[in-house]
Design a protein around this nucleic acid. Sequence first.
DNA 1: CTGAAAGCGCTAACAA
DNA 2: TTGTTAGCGCTTTCAG
Lengths: 362, 362
Amino acid sequence: MSRRRVTMADVARRAGVSPTTASFVLADRRDMRISGEAEERVRRAAQELGYRPNLTARGLRTSVTRTVAMISDTIATTQFAGEVIHGALDAAGARDHVLFIAETKGDPDVEAQLVEGMLDRQVDGFIYAAMSTREVRLPAALQDTRVVMLNCWAQGTRASSVLPDEVNAGRDAASVVLAAGHRQGVHVIGGRHITPATPEGVWAGQERMRGIEEAMAQAGTRLDGVAECDWQPADGHREVLRLLDAGTRPHALICLNDRVSMGAYQALQQAGLNVPDDVCVVSFDDSDLAAWLRPSLTSIALPHYDLGRTAVEVLLDGGIAPRVHRIPMPVTLRSSHRTTSGSPRPTVTPTTTRQGPGEGPP
Amino acid sequence: MSRRRVTMADVARRAGVSPTTASFVLADRRDMRISGEAEERVRRAAQELGYRPNLTARGLRTSVTRTVAMISDTIATTQFAGEVIHGALDAAGARDHVLFIAETKGDPDVEAQLVEGMLDRQVDGFIYAAMSTREVRLPAALQDTRVVMLNCWAQGTRASSVLPDEVNAGRDAASVVLAAGHRQGVHVIGGRHITPATPEGVWAGQERMRGIEEAMAQAGTRLDGVAECDWQPADGHREVLRLLDAGTRPHALICLNDRVSMGAYQALQQAGLNVPDDVCVVSFDDSDLAAWLRPSLTSIALPHYDLGRTAVEVLLDGGIAPRVHRIPMPVTLRSSHRTTSGSPRPTVTPTTTRQGPGEGPP
DNA sequence: CTGAAAGCGCTAACAA
DNA sequence: TTGTTAGCGCTTTCAG
């Protein structure tokens, strides 16, 4: 962009060696023997001239560019994006790679366009990411490409997936409630997210519910109710109010995200019920909201950073064999529940589970 | 990455023309006359073979890569990042460019490293972004480079800046309050953000306060008080409580962000005061919170998307002359204030102001 | 152990 | 109007 950069030929000339020799020492290749003295001269020359390799030229020759493209449907709206990118960036940087970002807006045409553009630039690999965990169709151009799927998966694809471990998160949520001494009166607000728009529910909801119900069963008890609804504050508010109006007096609420919890808090407050003394609340997402609410909210986070980081690690370090990597979801304990005296903290031990090739989730 | 791509030579051969001819038509260059027939043949051949140019090779030859690097101090934590990237992406995409993202974490060493890495990859230009609006020092390696500064500025630099128009946002906030009929009892919570950690305040606070005070003066009145404090929910809560305890009964609160407003709401509610009947509240940021709170909050947004978009536009389309571009901050009117009957909406007409070269903000 | 030379895919002088 | 040729900066046979 500015004035002429110093090239490898310059270094070789100053060091009094051939370009070949310079190339070998500057690329740190030890498979061809170079005299210690020549190596030293080259290194000094490079140092003195402030030599930096032109990665475009190297890329043209070797077709490796130390570049990865992250393509996602939406990057902006949700909190999701930031930390995912952050993690991906750290992992890429640690491996001397650099990250392209692109957004398809869910449009297959722009998606194809974008992928082509990245291929034209000879990226070394792709992270194909979805903002909400779900099954997707991998674009044709990515089929025979180094790619890992982030927060999504595709049937019949030779690509690894990196997913949040929602089932264990569900178990952990139930564990918190159980450890607080509640075996009865446990209600879930939000459920599988079965709504007119998503009659099957959403994956996160299904998985969390599976974990919750398993943990309850394992403790020899069961949920008193599940309110299926959208996951906005108004929904939490409405559903909790409905519960109370029906004369139900819940002891514990597991809310499917912090926004639902916020609505639940409002309803509880209206009804004059105290958190955590009258009702304990456990939530998912661990967004900023969880810390802002009073009392602060115990919540289980989506491991955004680790998802991004792991995806790049798998892409750059991982083998060829497709795998599903499940990333643990950390629990942050706050003030919206009480622990039974004597038991210091709920037993919360998230684990990473892995699946072998061939089986797509769930 | 996969099997051999079709090259321009392939296209030329199939079309029965020389590489030169193929190059001219495929690069859409009309400055050298090509026969319509040859052009047609080349286009068809390219089409049939599914030709795509190798941008790495082209970049090596021309040193333009249609690539821009966005380097920021922090990309993850704040909501800021997402929409900024979104805007930048849209502007870049519209110009057939692609976006590198990198994060310095505020460390000058990694910053230098990152910039070098981008330069090694022959990026066409840089967006240098800060997460909170402020003055920065442009890294040495970027000095003689095509760069625009996003949400920041540097003294004595030949680079354009893109900044939110906070002064007019302040004016707009005051206008909402005035249009609601409040000329007395108007208090600001948050102020310039003068705290032990930031004894001078922060730029956004200073600018907003300037706008607020100007608008009040213009209406022939003035603020009844400014609470200088941090901008977290707890601060809003504490300061409003303090106000009420001192026997003050505010009619309108201008809170410096939505989190402060959230705290203010809590305090008002404790005191049994109703929003907007007893106290009207106007806020900044227009985060998700603004829509979630009850009553929903009138708030003035940081124009994240437009900041990102404009920065890339200025970089790619703008002239060389350094400019400061001020991006209007949109007002979203909700339910936390009342308009005086008869006047339909507050007079809110944000404007973009521009400064000529030479004067750095503020 | 080192150097000469070819070539990655493309563009741009210069000739024809 | 078109073709020939050189070369962007680097890696990599293949001879020495």
